[in-house]
């Protein structure tokens, strides 16, 4: 049995839009995290059975060094990478299904006129559509998105949110321009540019929002105002 087969057993059947072949960095990080975690647990069990009462004598030193220092220090970066990488995937966002299901359904709807559906069909950011459009530039944006995501999970599980969900701030054109700025189709439209053939200052300052012409961002069924999570106590 190959590593890929062993790892494949621990991974789910890919959902719509997910890679169909094993071997992505996400697959590897999840498999390595799983393997290292299992090795740590195995080492602790071996220690409890065969090295009880010994700390640093003989083989106990090497066993404890591996299971309580080397493997855990390897687990931190690889485990964080696996979690963070998983958090960029659409299925992860869609986990809060009662809230996000309409958004994910719209994303996957080939007939929807929404920007989200168009981006999904173009496959320009396969599997990470939510994250790509809703996280800011650079590593700061990535971590800010993760922190916000933690808050979302807390509010979802404690049912302390109301529908319809809203953006914290108006969607900035910067998030569109990080991909579209410089693209041939974008630059070919004179309305996107100023006289000096650079991106329009109206767009850069958000005086004109992309969705004013290209909306809607999402096409959703009308939610019940004030509705809460069905499982709310």
């Amino acid at each position: 049995m190959t590593v890929a087969q062993i790892a494949g057993a621990a991974t789910q059947i890919p959902t719509r839009g997910e890679p169909i072949r094993w071997g992505t960095t996400l697959n590897w990080s999840i498999t390595l995290t799983l393997a290292v975690s299992a090795l740590i647990l195995l080492g602790i069990v071996v220690s409890l059975i065969f090295f009880r009462g010994r700390q640093t004598e003989g083989n106990a030193l090497w066993l404890h060094l591996l299971t309580l220092a080397v493997f855990p220090l390897f687990l931190i970066p690889i485990g964080n990478f696996a979690v963070f990488e998983s958090a960029t995937r659409v299925p992860f966002c869609g986990t809060c299904h009662l809230v996000m299901k309409p958004y994910v359904d719209d994303l996957h709807d080939a007939k929807s006129p929404s920007l989200a559906a168009a981006h999904f069909q173009q496959r320009s950011m396969p599997g990470t559509e939510c994250y790509t459009c809703h996280s800011d530039y650079g590593i700061h944006g990535t971590y800010a998105a993760k922190l916000e995501g933690m808050r979302h999970v807390y509010k979802y599980w404690t049912s302390t949110y109301t529908l319809p969900i809203k953006l914290y701030a108006p969607f900035s054109n910067e998030l569109c321009l990080k991909c579209h700025n410089g693209a041939k189709a974008f630059m070919a439209q004179a309305i996107h540019l100023d006289d000096d053939n650079k991106v329009s200052s109206d767009l850069l300052t958000d005086d004109t929002n992309c969705t004013q012409c290209h909306g809607p961002a999402h096409q959703l069924p009308k939610p019940t105002p004030g509705a809460r999570h069905a499982g709310a106590r």
Binding site: I40, I44, N80, V83
Partner: peptide
């Protein structure tokens, strides 16, 4: 370390986001 590793095994095997966040 064992508790964190246990969470690592469970979260990565099930790939449930809430468990992954606990693991993180």
């Amino acid at each position: 370390v064992g508790f964190a590793a246990f969470l690592g095994v469970v979260s990565m095997a099930t790939r449930r986001p809430i468990l992954m966040l606990f693991f993180a």
